[in-house]
Design a protein around this nucleic acid. Structure first.
Lengths: 140, 140
DNA sequence: CGTGAAAGCAAGAAGGA
DNA sequence: TCCTTCTTGCTTTCACG
């Protein structure tokens, strides 16, 4: 990938709402040229989306936790992600190599919410869980 | 928080580059009204930033891992986040309650890069590590 | 990749419920 | 306080060189 594209990606990661005009000034290209480059990056799947970052506490979910997930019966077909996909509190799901099969990052409001969520994950996913509470997030 | 603000936040999380005009149509308010609301959400720190999501593989970092971090000497002052902040490959740092003190999410290109990174984390952070490799990311 | 024109959008001022 | 409308200047988009 070219230097201009990398610079564009950097700037768009810093400020996803920057205008193509400013982007052009920053990389030394015309508005249309950067616009075209950005479109190509999007088409090639390099830039996948643009999102607003929101303070979880403001949305009523100040409590973050990581949940390690292991199937109760390892012989079952592994469709755990499909089984868990509908659960809104799970905001990331990683398939991992290690003690457990999956690692989930979840966000909830209170310890009670976490208890309910874990119970739902266990029954709906057919899994056992091991949970690690996040105290603070120095950066993300 | 009001329903309109929540709807605005939802839409901005889905598409961080949506125009205020479209946002206004979607929530049934004028352009200026939503614009004003968005600015207030930003000022109040509810919307913290806008970012482009980029495919890690395209940036040459297809390998994701979680690193549990424990201080070698628990009596030392705990400035581990400060010690690790400069390391670009660490893209999230969580202080956790559990076996270890911190959980890092890291992204690198190759197993060799991971080896180097872990060695740097250990020496620079004054910590021991336990690493879990991510195989796939069903969602994030 | 750049230019230029047309359409669309942002941002501020003024005024009303 | 929060909304709408209006106006001005930018930004985006697209056809073309």
């Amino acid at each position: 990938m070219e230097a201009a594209d990398l610079r564009i990606i950097d700037l768009l990661r810093e400020d996803g709402r920057i205008s193509y005009t400013d982007l052009g000034k920053a990389v030394g290209l015309s508005t249309s040229a950067v616009h075209q480059r950005v479109r190509r990056l999007e088409e090639r799947g390099i830039i996948t989306s643009y999102t607003a970052q929101v303070d979880p506490a403001a949305l009523g979910t100040p409590l973050t936790a990581f949940v390690s997930v292991t199937p109760l019966d390892p012989r079952d077909p592994d469709d755990i992600p499909d089984r868990l996909r509908g659960i809104a509190q799970i905001d990331a799901c990683y398939s991992v190599a290690g003690d457990s099969n999956y690692l989930l990052r979840v966000r909830v409001g209170t310890p009670q919410d976490l208890e309910e969520l874990l119970s739902r994950v266990r029954s709906q996913g057919g899994v056992s869980t091991r949970t690690t509470i996040v105290l603070t997030t120095p950066w993300e």
